[in-house]
Design a protein around this nucleic acid. Structure first.
Length: 492
RNA sequence: GGCCCCAUGGUCAAGCGGCUAAGACGGCGCCCUCUCAAGGCGCAAUCACGAGUUCGAUUCUCGUUGGGGUCACCA
């Protein structure tokens, strides 16, 4: 039988990287076995409706390189793929269970349930529904129904014994049935709860492998009880370890907790906006909680196709993993280094434009920037020396390793100016001219190069050597700055 | 708190009874080098603890500790 998995996000307008990784693994699980990947929108909570939120889902998947075979936008044989459009199909299933004595109407008011909770909180007792309506007489039920008393439908959970199920990652999980409460299946507004809709949809859509976060580990027996009630096959479960974030609390202690907004950018688009490439993000999160094996062992950089080939459920780990921005940074840098000139330019252009970079410098800049940036946003900072000459401190001219001092700098620049004024303005020529000047003066070439570069750039660190800096600045601007440097040195 | 799950360096992690316990990020050092990167080489750093089982435990069992998750008419 062909594997079918699904991604069932709820349209909140925000795609957390944890959810995205779940989607990725669902996608990979299906694709690796040449199966089908389904997108279903879970919007059963009318109060949470957010305009345009489904577009966020589509845009995320598209950018992330995850393609679905069935979904609201492309259809399929198991539609509709939006839960609100399937609203009418859930209740009959619940009523069938009521008829069979596996579920029941509950007329308890919100107030009663709240007071129940409060009481439980006070005494520190077990929380949960007290099953007040589980055994109402038929007369009471009929009367309430006739009086149009609002009701929900609750699952009649097993009370005694224990339930065991198998998970592909965590193995056999056993839970005492007394831990299970009578969860609501159909809410007072007639909509199904997430849990109920999930079971009905997964079954009616033929989902074979349920891939989801490990937070569902302890509620899975309730799902299974539902499958059993209907006499349906229980799907294969693949629960995923959670992604954690690291933060520092008010005492300066480092704490690890479930990744959330307090850990910085945890939304997919947050990261994209900060300059992380979608492919790099996917590559990185694929490796969070899963390790490749066989021919792919120890590999760090994967294209989506390679992930599909390499992905294996056996490589999924059980323990939660911490989201490491440093490693993401490195992965992003690797992607930049591997980029084609074309793609590189497309990404870099907006930043080049801030400095009025002309096309004749594109090739040089690609060479200079590729090894030096891990995000394109850093180009601005790398090229900031081009904007205007900083009012730098003259001590910049002193550099021990280059054997450069204030005095030697004056000397070097005085000699370099006429040479630069007459040299052909290209990298090789400039480098050669300075090198031979140094030779004729019988000094290390750094003695000339250091001060010239400092005077031209006005900063100690530049993304390239003298010749590159001079080329980027242009002959006129370079000489202007170098002469200013000489004046300042002399004036000291 | 009850229940469930987890436990190898700072982080991601390989390991699935016998290894000098891989690899990557980060850190540090050296080399290369006209600054900074990139690249090359190298170093430091891990089996939470205690009992078992076994000829032998990182690996199996139990307990302790620690961490996480979950206990909604949210998804």
């Amino acid at each position: 039988m062909k594997i079918r998995t699904r991604f069932a996000p709820s349209p909140t307008g925000f795609m957390h990287v944890g959810n995205l990784r779940t989607a990725l693994y669902e996608y990979l699980t299906a694709r690796h076995e040449d199966g089908t990947f389904v997108l279903r929108i879970e919007d059963t909570d009318q109060e949470r409706f957010v305009e345009g939120a489904t577009d966020v889902i589509y845009n995320t998947l598209k950018l992330a390189g995850i393609t679905h075979d069935e979904g609201p936008d492309i259809g399929g044989d198991f539609g509709p793929y939006v839960q609100s459009e399937r609203k009418d199909m859930y209740k009959p299933y619940a009523e069938q269970l009521v008829k069979e004595g596996k579920a029941y109407y509950c007329f308890c008011t919100k107030e009663r349930l709240d007071s129940l909770k409060d009481k439980a909180k006070e005494s520190g007792e077990i929380v949960g529904y007290d099953r007040h309506c589980r055994n109402l007489s038929q007369e009471e039920i009929d009367k309430n129904l006739a009086d149009k008393v609002p009701y929900v439908i609750r699952q009649k959970s097993p009370i005694e014994g224990e339930s065991t199920y198998h998970d592909c990652v965590y193995g056999d999980i056993t839970i005492k049935n007394e831990e299970l409460d009578d969860q609501v299946l159909i809410k007072a507004d007639g909509f199904p709860t997430y849990n109920f809709a999930n079971v009905i949809d997964d079954h009616t859509m033929g989902i074979t492998h349920v891939v989801r976060g490990s937070e569902y580990l302890s509620s899975t027996p309730k799902y299974n009880a539902l499958y059993d009630s209907f006499g349906w096959d229980i799907p294969t479960y693949i629960h995923l370890p959670l992604i954690m974030g690291k933060s520092v609390d008010e005492n300066g202690e480092t704490v690890v907790s479930k990744l959330s907004k307090r850990h910085g950018s945890t939304g997919f688009f947050d990261l994209v906006n900060e300059g992380y490439l979608p492919e790099a993000i996917m590559n990185y999160i694929a490796l969070l909680g899963w390790a490749p094996a066989g021919e792919f062992e120890n590999r760090e950089i994967f294209s989506m196709d390679e992930l599909i080939k390499a992905f294996d459920i056996n490589g999924i780990s059980k323990s939660p993993s911490v989201f490491d921005y440093d490693k993401l940074e490195w992965v992003n840098g690797e992607y930049i280094k591997l980029m084609s000139s074309e793609d590189f330019l497309k990404n870099a252009k907006p930043y080049y434009d801030e400095f009025g970079i002309t096309p004749d410098h594109y090739e040089l800049l690609e060479e200079l920037m590729k090894p030096r940036i891990t995000r394109f946003t850093q180009i601005t900072e790398k090229l900031s020396f081009m904007n205007e000459l900083a009012n730098y401190d003259l001590s910049l001219f002193e550099h021990k390793k280059s054997k450069s001092t204030i005095e030697s700098s004056i000397d070097a620049i005085e000699a370099a100016i006429p040479v630069l004024e007459n040299v052909e303005w290209n990298r090789e020529a400039i480098t050669e001219a300075i090198t031979s000047l140094a030779e004729s003066k019988e000094v290390k070439k750094t003695v000339i190069m250091w001060p010239v570069r400092i005077a031209a750039a006005g900063v100690a660190v530049t993304p390239g050597g003298v010749s590159e800096v001079l080329i980027l600045l242009g002959k006129e601007e370079s000489l202007r700055r170098i002469k200013i440097g000489l004046e300042r040195l002399r004036g000291k």
